[in-house]
Nucleic acid binder design. Structure first.
Lengths: 230, 230
DNA sequence: CGAACCCTTGATGGCGATCAAACGCCGTGG
DNA sequence: CCACGGCGTTTGATCGCCATCAAGGGTTCG
């Protein structure tokens, strides 16, 4: 890793509070690399040799079962992924690929584990990180279990808008087929659902979304103030 | 907490390696209580005042969205639950109720947090615990996203059997309506699916399951050696 | 004994998957 | 520069899984 890049990364929540010498040690043994789009970084069943931290770009976590493939999560910067597998030294439950060119920090898992054991601040940060990730997963599971597809899409768009400061107009973060899979539906149905949302205050043309009537959207999405984290 | 109960609990993975004095301190401030069946312990949106550790009995984690209610997970002894909420001091994402009479250890969250900060061994155990829980959740989400109901049921029964040492005959761990909800289906459909499984080597009568032809069951369930953790 | 409640079985309907085809965009190569 | 092919998206038609509605049987408990 090049020296001039260190300050930026040292400021990340995961590393901010930890002992400086140990941080240097970790960074020294890690790799900062830029990957092209559509590159598979990790495959289900593989050993978790590195903790990955996405600094720039976009990464998709997905799983396959024979012929079917489903995207599980979009990872956006700045965020680590597969911390659970790296910490427990188990096999990856999900595969990961870049969706756009991505800058990724790769930290050797063994070093991560030994450092967590020695540095309380890093341990705390890692624990917080994984706890938040756990909660996100609970959200996904409840979402898919008790909303139907149109409501899921509505809620997804509502949360996307909110993520961008309640933007009235914004771009979808990924291709529609990826979003469809993320929401547990087929591309065909997503397309239809996008059309239907016109009746609920949202115009979607290509990758750009325009919220015409936020009230109507919310009425459909019924975002949960607890689960959806207001 | 009564003194004679302490050794049993001190041996739990979560507490086994930690400093003895701190462990005593935690136990001294905690409550060990027996709850009757069907009692709501925790409600979604509430503050996580206690970490719960189920020692005996059976607990259901579930969420509600207006009128609908879905069970998210069965908690079996010995296992902690809602560790993520307790550690990050956030609101519960799920509700919890006892399904049978349950003995539960309740540890005040603030004390848990401060002790984790001081005791590396406890921190490590907590981290492992939540990482494993995270991975279970990933399993649930993949399961629901890429299997259909009959396959999910088949896989559920297969894993139940395996949990009991590849038992040929065993009892369902909960009422069928709960299991139906856990598997993301209606009680009616679960009932029908149970009947259909006769064609796939499984006989189900009431709460007892008999595996006639394990090969056929596996062919239907297609358990994933990675995800389903062989 | 009656009243819940759970489970089962049947009939029907709807949501969303699948199949199929056409359109637009974009890169490559003639 | 244009032709072509690939891929993502859209739209339409059809199918099937599963939810819903409805009713009856069994069990538990007051």
């Amino acid at each position: 890793m090049r020296t001039e890049e260190i300050p930026e990364i040292a400021a990340l929540p995961l590393f901010a509070a930890m002992n400086e010498r140990m941080r240097e040690e970790i960074f020294h043994a890690s790799f900062l690399q830029v990957f092209p789009p559509a590159l598979t970084l990790i495959e289900t069943g593989g050993r978790a040799d590195f903790l990955h931290v996405l600094l720039d770009g976009l990464v998709e976590l997905f799983t396959t079962n024979g012929s079917r493939e489903v995207t599980m999560q979009l990872v956006r910067p700045v965020s680590s992924f597969i911390l659970a597998a790296a910490y427990t030294d188990q096999r990856y439950l999900m595969s990961a690929r870049t969706l756009s060119a991505s800058r990724i920090l790769m930290i050797p898992s063994p070093l991560l584990r030994t450092t967590i054991a020695k540095d309380g601040a890093l341990a705390a940060a890692a624990m917080t990180e994984i706890a938040l990730r756990y909660r996100n997963l609970v959200r996904s599971l409840t979402d898919i279990k008790l909303r139907q597809t149109l409501e899921r899409l509505a809620n997804f768009l509502f949360l996307e808008s909110r993520r961008q400061g309640d933007a009235v107009q914004f771009q979808l973060p990924a291709e529609k087929r990826v979003i469809a899979s993320l929401l547990g539906m087929t591309p065909e149905n997503l397309s239809r659902a996008c059309g239907t949302l016109a009746e609920h205050g949202v115009l979607i043309s290509g990758p750009t979304v325009q919220i015409i009537d936020r009230t109507k959207l919310i009425a459909l999405a019924r975002p949960d103030p607890v689960v959806d984290d207001f």
